[in-house]
């Protein structure tokens, strides 16, 4: 049984890259097959997931991470409500990760980076949430329990990174793996569903690696010899708004 899964999984993986989609491929993609077994035990504080983003490797004009995130979480299915201007829609549609371009005031140098929820150890959004819907999972992922979120948006007021989005419109199309609907707040959850299925990477990091840029290193902050800790050791890095002492899970090099 297990064997079956693995072969199917590998088949699916291999086919991902293939452009031609025949009947065989459709079987591989078919919706019922979830490649790995899901978690059976609750997450613990053994891991704390995080990222290092090397801005020097983040390429101009590349939006692979953003596109992958949208595809992963069904954000590409969002539809601008009829009668809403594009300008306003840009600021109302849900955005979990965005590409930011900065210019140094003195040197004029340009820096690029993807910006998403920073998964703080002491998240202001969690502190302010009246119902406790905004919470930090044991493995350090900050997310929203959208079954008790009342849509007050206080967390969005509190977030120093503009990482959260409020769903302003009824959601027609969504993926099974990423339920989402009007009236709640949502944000990057480090692809929790992937991690819970034993995968060790997020959609954005994977996409970045596939382009060959390798700007995003995803990993376990608690794992001293893991790739993330090694990367953090190797490159000088910092947190955005370090002054707030939030101990973010996402760190930036070359900023």
């Amino acid at each position: 049984m297990k064997q079956d899964h693995d072969t199917i999984d590998q088949g699916r993986r291999a086919l991902l890259g293939a452009a031609a989609v025949g009947a065989a491929a459709t079987v591989g993609f078919s919706s019922t097959i979830v490649s790995a077994e899901g978690r059976k035990t609750p997450v613990t504080a053994e891991h704390r997931w995080g990222m290092l983003i090397d801005t020097s490797k983040c390429a101009d004009g590349c939006t692979a991470c953003v596109d992958a995130c949208e595809l992963e979480n069904g954000l590409n299915l969002q539809e601008r409500p009829h009668g809403l201007s594009q300008q306003k829609w840009d600021d109302q549609r849900s955005t979990w990760i965005r590409k930011v371009r900065l210019q140094d005031n003195l040197s004029g140098q340009i820096t690029q980076l993807p910006l998403m929820c920073q998964h703080c150890e002491k998240p202001p959004c969690v502190d302010v949430c009246p119902t406790g819907a905004s919470f930090k999972r044991a493995d350090g992922i900050v997310m929203v329990d959208r079954h008790i979120c009342i849509g007050c948006r206080y967390c969005m007021m509190a977030c120093p990174y503009k990482a959260r989005s409020f769903i302003h419109e009824p959601v027609e199309h969504k993926f099974t793996r990423a339920p989402r609907g009007k009236g709640c707040v949502e944000s990057c959850n480090l692809c929790a569903h992937r991690l819970d299925h034993g995968e060790n990477n997020t959609a954005c990091a994977e996409a970045c690696a596939q382009t060959g840029h390798q700007a995003i290193t995803f990993g376990d902050l608690n794992h001293a010899n893991g790739k993330l800790r090694q990367a953090l050791k190797a490159t000088k890095n910092r947190q955005i708004r370090e002054d707030l002492k939030l101990n973010t899970g996402v760190r930036y090099a070359g900023l």
């Binding site: 009947a23 459709t26 079987v27 078919s30 919706s31 019922t32 339920p179």
Partner: peptide, 27 residues
């Protein structure tokens, strides 16, 4: 309001490519 009402995008990473109705039926 939030949960998908059809099995769609269950597996992660990619939405299934749009397929012809026959292929879908076969699937």
């Amino acid at each position: 309001d939030c949960h998908a009402t059809v099995p769609k995008g269950e597996a992660w990473n990619q939405e299934p490519e749009p397929t012809a109705p026959e292929a879908n039926w076969m699937m």
